[in-house]
């Protein structure tokens, strides 16, 4: 088996340690003797998106996100084709916002999104940034899993019909919101940094399975020793439960 990952805008969208997600996916495949290739794709680079099992985009700073906007728009059809062919898409923060209808940044500049989905994002300086540790109960194709991370976003993402999960502690898509992220079976968008995957091995394996499913009917993942990972998650969950509010 071989997992082919495309890391888009690796040089721009790389805030808050999002690169760690790639490291986790890679090691968890290699530890199971699944081969991994990781390609990067910068602005203007020719890549056939449909060749990959997984496309990953992280978060970036406002100024830098503006720079890649046009490039992403040029690839809209390629992205649609890849999704249609069952490429799995993992989007963190800025990447997540880009796939919606539009994004209004903290300076009031409006950027049109790819418009693949009906959600949109507006910065609202009245409520302030959503910052801090977060726990959600994610619904991964029917399986309820506790996921922990760190969120840090000014944008408020609204009009989501299929969220990734319910907020247990923290904000989520909007300030003091009820739900976090977006997931439709093929595209998973979330505000959770930390990075997301090291402390959430169930989520990492879920993504690996979903992605490989594009080329492999039956994907069985050998269990790994996740003692450290689960201790890390449990430590954070306990701490959040003890914190007030």
């Amino acid at each position: 088996m071989k997992m082919k990952i495309l890391w888009m805008y690796h040089d721009i969208m790389d805030l808050y340690g999002d690169r760690g997600n790639i490291q986790v996916l890679k090691k968890r495949c290699l530890d199971r003797d699944i081969e991994v290739s990781i390609d990067t794709c910068g602005i203007g680079e020719q890549k056939n998106l449909n060749d990959y099992h997984l496309i990953f985009i992280g978060g970036g700073a406002d100024r830098e996100q503006h720079l890649l906007y046009q490039d992403l728009v040029n690839r809209k059809q390629d992205i649609l084709d890849a999704i249609k062919a069952h490429t799995f898409v993992l989007l963190i923060c800025g990447g997540y916002q880009f796939f919606g209808k539009y994004y209004i940044d903290s300076n009031g500049n409006r950027i049109e999104g790819l418009g693949l989905f009906e959600y949109y994002t507006e910065s609202n300086s009245d409520v302030g940034r959503c910052i801090g540790n977060i726990e959600i109960e994610a619904d991964l194709d029917g399986e309820k899993v506790s996921i922990v991370g760190f969120e840090n976003h000014g944008g408020q993402t609204k009009n989501i019909k299929t969220p990734l999960g319910k907020v247990i502690k923290g904000h989520g898509n909007v300030y003091r919101g009820e739900f976090e992220g977006f997931y439709n079976g093929q595209v998973l968008g979330t505000y959770m940094h930390g990075p997301l995957l090291p402390k959430n091995p169930e989520m990492a394996d879920f993504i690996i399975k979903k992605a490989l499913h594009k080329d492999y009917e039956e994907v069985m993942l050998k269990p790994l020793d996740d003692t450290l990972e689960l201790e890390a998650k449990e430590t954070m969950r306990k701490r959040m439960q003890q914190e007030k509010g």
Binding site: Y16, G17, D18, R19, G20, Q23, N133, F150, H193
Partner: peptide, 9 residues
């Protein structure tokens, strides 16, 4: 800094 994700950078 309450965000420790910098260790991944």
């Amino acid at each position: 800094g309450t965000d420790i994700s910098w260790i991944w950078d």
